[in-house]
């Protein structure tokens, strides 16, 4: 999620969009399951994408599919979107008017999906059954398992500055590919389940990882080496990680019973910023590319909130009852 923010900002700057005087330009989506109201049922009340409207309300967008976890837009065609879901990858090429599932029965439980901005025809996905790669913009997919010790993965990022450089968060640490997910090699990361990877737009070598039970980890060399980042969350399950696209010094992590923790100095020091949130269970964090310094946080079923002062105060952002998997800012609709 953070990587998408970063890439979009870079693109926006390149295109001169950042100088446009208009209000927010991004399309802001939440990938959620409405689990709060799920009683005596194995399925949530609703599941899919919600699109934030100008008035701050959220409206359904796209197909209602169980287990929708993320969304990504083609770097060369904003009308082409790839949706990650339990049913597989679902693609639109007309901005959401029509959708097509582009995976077969073999693919399920897609947890994260990215385009390779340095090679826009390439896209990659992390699924609970192993990673996938596409070389035709998500129109078709191939299994991409070579070199992996275990297949489970739920987070993936692609280096915006280096085509084919992909990092995958697995149940056995972080794996790296230099050939567009054809082959993978283990990085010097602990043998722990990696729950979220984020990269910096301002400093492409800066990466942040949230893990299961081992807290946050930072890499300052594009994923070759990693160090534990925050003693205050060292044993936490961190589902959320984000780096501001405006300033590589601003980092945030969030997780179960740890709330939100932020760093304003590139990860040297961290502070608890949970006060003001209704719950300490945070699954997604996202810096807003349109409002400098705005941080979004989505709690487990207790709503989504934003802060304009790096978490010192929080404001209601809606989506009460949601179990959010991703908050996604995409370029404006064509």
């Amino acid at each position: 999620m953070s990587s998408r923010l970063s890439r979009f900002l870079v693109l926006a700057l390149v295109a001169g969009l950042a100088t446009a005087p208009a209000a927010p330009v991004s399309r802001f989506y939440a990938a959620v399951s409405m689990t709060k109201a799920q009683k005596n049922s194995p399925t949530p009340l609703d599941s899919g994408l919600y699109l934030r409207q100008a008035d701050g309300q959220w409206a359904n967008f796209g197909p209602r599919i169980l287990g929708v976890t993320s969304l990504v837009a083609s770097p060369v065609n904003p009308a082409t979107l790839l949706l990650a879901s339990s049913d597989g990858v679902v693609r639109t090429t007309d901005g959401g008017k029509t959708w097509r599932k582009t995976t077969g029965w073999e693919v399920a439980d897609v947890r994260a999906i990215v385009f390779d901005h340095a090679n826009p025809a390439h896209a990659y996905a992390a699924t609970a059954w192993g990673p996938l790669r596409s070389t035709d913009g998500g129109a078709s997919w191939q299994l991409a398992q070579q070199g992996l010790s275990r297949l489970y993965c739920q987070t993936i990022i692609a280096d915006a500055a280096s085509g084919g450089h992909v990092l995958l968060g697995t149940e056995d640490g972080v794996y790296v590919s230099r050939d567009g997910a054809v082959t993978w090699a283990r990085t010097a990361f602990p043998a722990v389940s990696v729950l979220r990877l984020a990269e910096s737009a301002a400093d492409p070598k800066l990466l942040l990882a949230g893990t299961q039970g081992r807290g946050a980890w930072l890499s300052r060399d594009g994923g070759q080496s990693w160090t534990a980042a925050d003693p205050g969350s060292a044993t936490a399950n961190l589902y959320a990680a984000a780096i501001s696209p405006h300033a590589a010094t601003q980092l945030a992590v969030g997780g179960w019973e740890i709330g939100v923790r932020v760093s304003a100095d590139g990860g040297r020091t961290w502070a608890d910023r949970t006060a003001g949130l209704p719950a300490k269970n945070v699954f997604v964090l996202a810096f807003d590319p349109d409002v400098k310094g705005r941080l979004w946080a989505s709690t487990f079923e207790e709503g989504t909130y934003y802060s304009d002062d790096l978490g010192r105060t929080w404001h209601d952002g809606g989506l009460y009852g949601a179990y959010a998997f991703d908050l996604v800012f995409l370029p404006p609709a064509p």
Binding site: T35, K39, N40, P42, A108, Q212, W256, F283
Partner: peptide, 17 residues
């Protein structure tokens, strides 16, 4: 299940009380 560590038990019990 593909669910998260901290929510999976809770979500299972929503239908298998």
């Amino acid at each position: 299940f593909g669910a998260d560590w901290d929510t999976v038990t809770n979500l299972i019990a929503r239908s298998k009380a």
